[in-house]
Computed example of a mutant assay.
Amino acid sequence: MQPTRLPLSDCLDAAVTAAHAAAAILQAYSHNRADLVIDTKMRNDLVSQADRESENAVIEILRQRTPDYGIVAEESGGQTAGLASWYIDPLDGTTNFLHGIPQYAVSIALIAHAGTLVDGDKPLERDTPVIGVVYDPNREELFTAMYGVGAWLNEHRITVSNASSLADSVVGTGFPFRDFSFYDEYMPTLHHAIRHTRGVRRHGAAALDLAWVACGRYDGYWEMGLAPWDVAAGTVIVREAGGICEDIRHQDSWPIKGYVYAGNEHTAPALDAMIQPHMKKI
């Protein structure tokens, strides 16, 4: 039996439609933040009906358009299934959103499972991000990528920066804020980056951090302790923009466990070299 080929163009269209639907809900709530009912899942981990309603809108569209694919979503859970699975973060940057900070996005990715045909006639050997959509509704910036085809910001093709070293780089990161189990691994990397880069930024929305690497605003980015839906879309967008986006622990085919570093051909290896001496053996 021949492996089945994913209809990538149809999947990208579905993801873009879903991202716009979710963003419309978020922006409607953004003007009435005082009325939001906010729940605390755990320390510094917040959720509101804006998250839930936007996620429901995404899932409804994706289930209608791609009924045989798995869905893994931040608020409602789910599971992988079929040829490929969607990873959904309906509101990446919830804390920013709830505080009126206009740095948040909808993030939707499709992960093709091993054995699926995507590009050419050779089935994938490992699970691979193949569609990425990150939509910033405040700037009306739509970042998209398709495996083997490229990455775009709105209608313009994007590429990673050409910085040749960390000394010439502005890099993004994220501090421990909920899970502090990796604090001793992360903090030495931050201290190093502060001393050896042009500047370090922490904006609080990982999907946008990766999208900004893809379009060259950041020269590199690293973070620990994220969730798979935080990084799935950004991974394929960076890769299709000519960059490197990998698992810090060098174990998985994409940073599914939320330990991620990204950059261009010079800065990504430099970030990896900065990080590795401080990682505990597991």
Rank of each mutant, 00 (worst) to 15 (best):
S181L: 03
K281L: 12
A205L: 00
A109M: 11
R33L: 15
A24D: 14
E55T: 04
G258I: 09
W254D: 03
A211F: 00
L153I: 07
P277I: 12
D168C: 01
A114E: 11
A205M: 05
W86G: 01
I248E: 03
V149N: 14
H156T: 13
V149Q: 15
L142N: 04
Q79K: 13
D252P: 00
L6M: 11
E53A: 07
T40R: 15
Y261M: 06
W212K: 04
A241H: 08
S169W: 00
D219A: 12
H278F: 15
M1F: 04
R217Q: 10
A262T: 11
H250F: 07
D179K: 02
G100I: 11
L117T: 10
D13F: 03
C245K: 10
Y104N: 05
A241Q: 04
I88C: 03
S9K: 14
T173K: 03
A24S: 12
L110Y: 03
D68I: 09
I25S: 09
R178I: 04
I244M: 05
Q276R: 15
D219G: 01
S161K: 04
I275G: 01
Y87Q: 03
S181N: 12
N154I: 08
T66H: 09
G100V: 12
L117V: 06
V37P: 00
D230N: 15
A109I: 13
P123I: 06
V106M: 06
R249E: 09
A57C: 06
L166P: 06
D184I: 11
P129L: 09
E141I: 06
E75S: 02
N44R: 15
A227M: 14
T235K: 08
A211H: 01
Y29L: 00
A232Y: 13
